[in-house]
């Protein structure tokens, strides 16, 4: 009896939701967007991804002189679904989020791609559609201010003589810092010890307190506390404007590319109407390029790197290939 009722309710709900969705998406095609849009952030409020997402979407409802929207055209609000290093939020997004363009999510590359390769997740590059990228934060190799190492080369030499003796902290497993760590080990042919910290802040603390010998951390965070640490190298293709004196690992002859750079941007789930994706793909980069937004980004030391949908699609595909190769060797 109860089972039957349950089945009926379930069927009823499914049909009801289906009809409703249908109605909504038909209405959408022409008038999108006609109500505020959400952005799901898979990390805690106050974290770097969260506050950057809030700044990046500031200009979403801005109007021009003729009262016409210049970018997305509706206010954007942020909701946080943190947990399991982002997996919780992204799992929800890929499987449960409405596919009508009224719920976007912030992505972190390489985190979500690496997780989708290593773990059994509901998301991957195949069921998500990027609409624009606002920032790129490379990983930097840091040591405490009293450290014996003054350059990445010294560190590598020491590690060659003392395998497994150099501890390196990072924000967690399978995040940009971990990828940079794996690449460094592989490129320099050394064995180090990775110590996952509690987020970037926890990893930084281990370096400052001298509990670990070195660490990978966000360039933006490291640049900000440059007095307490020594920044040895950047894991990117080029030097960064925030730290013009710090060499890249590549310059030092250690072949590490930009796979570990933490890209942040917005995406929608697959199944979102093409018209909606197109609208977002054209307007989201305009929103990121707003003068006030750029000013705030600069003020908060957040490295900006704006890319459109096609560029992001290309970047995702490159990362997917590089990470699959890198992480396959790990197993």
């Amino acid at each position: 009896m109860s089972l039957l009722t349950q089945k009926f309710t379930k069927a009823g709900i499914t049909i009801g939701t289906g009809l409703l969705m249908l109605g909504v998406s038909v209405a959408n095609a022409e008038s999108y967007p006609d109500r505020p849009i959400g952005v799901m952030v898979a990390y805690n409020p106050g974290g770097a991804t969260d506050f950057q997402a809030r700044i990046a979407t500031l200009a979403s409802a801005k109007l021009d002189k003729d009262e016409k929207p210049i970018s997305v055209g509706q206010p954007i609000y942020v909701t946080n679904k943190p947990g399991a290093g982002g997996r919780k939020g992204w799992n929800w997004f890929a499987s449960k989020a409405p596919q009508d363009g009224y719920m976007l999510a912030a992505y972190n590359v390489p985190h979500f791609i690496a997780q989708s390769i290593v773990f059994d997740t509901k998301y991957s590059v195949d069921n998500l559609e990027p609409v624009g990228n606002w920032g790129a934060d490379p990983a930097v190799l840091i040591v405490g201010k009293d450290s014996q190492f003054n350059s990445a080369t010294e560190l590598v030499e020491f590690a060659k003589a003392n395998p497994d003796k150099v501890t390196v902290s990072g924000a967690g497993k399978f995040v940009g810092h971990h990828i940079a760590f794996l690449q460094l080990e592989k490129a320099a042919g050394i064995d180090l010890k990775y110590v996952p910290g509690k987020g970037g802040v926890g990893a930084m603390k281990l370096v400052k307190g001298g509990q670990v010998k070195a660490g990978f951390n966000n360039l933006s965070d490291a640049a900000r506390t440059a007095g307490d640490i020594k920044i040895l190298a950047v894991a990117d293709l080029e030097r960064h404007a925030f730290l013009p004196d710090v060499p890249t690992l590549k310059e030092l002859g250690i072949d590490v590319d930009n796979s570990s750079v933490n890209f942040r941007g917005l995406m929608v789930p697959k199944g979102t109407p093409q018209a909606v994706i197109d609208h977002l793909a054209t307007t989201v980069p305009i929103m990121f390029n707003d003068k006030k937004t750029l000013g705030k980004m600069k003020q908060t030391n957040s490295p900006v790197h704006i890319m459109n949908r096609d560029e992001v699609l290309k970047m995702w595909a490159e990362r997917q290939a590089a990470l699959t190769e890198l992480l396959a060797e790990l197993k």
Binding site: V201, T225, T300
Partner: peptide, 26 residues
């Protein structure tokens, strides 16, 4: 001083500082 929060709430407050471009430290 060190950008290391002493409690979960202080951790959230850190975000509040950063948003205004106030970076903990000297």
């Amino acid at each position: 001083t060190l950008s290391i929060p002493g409690s979960p709430t202080a951790a959230v407050l850190l975000g509040g500082l950063l948003i205004h471009g106030l970076f903990p430290g000297p």
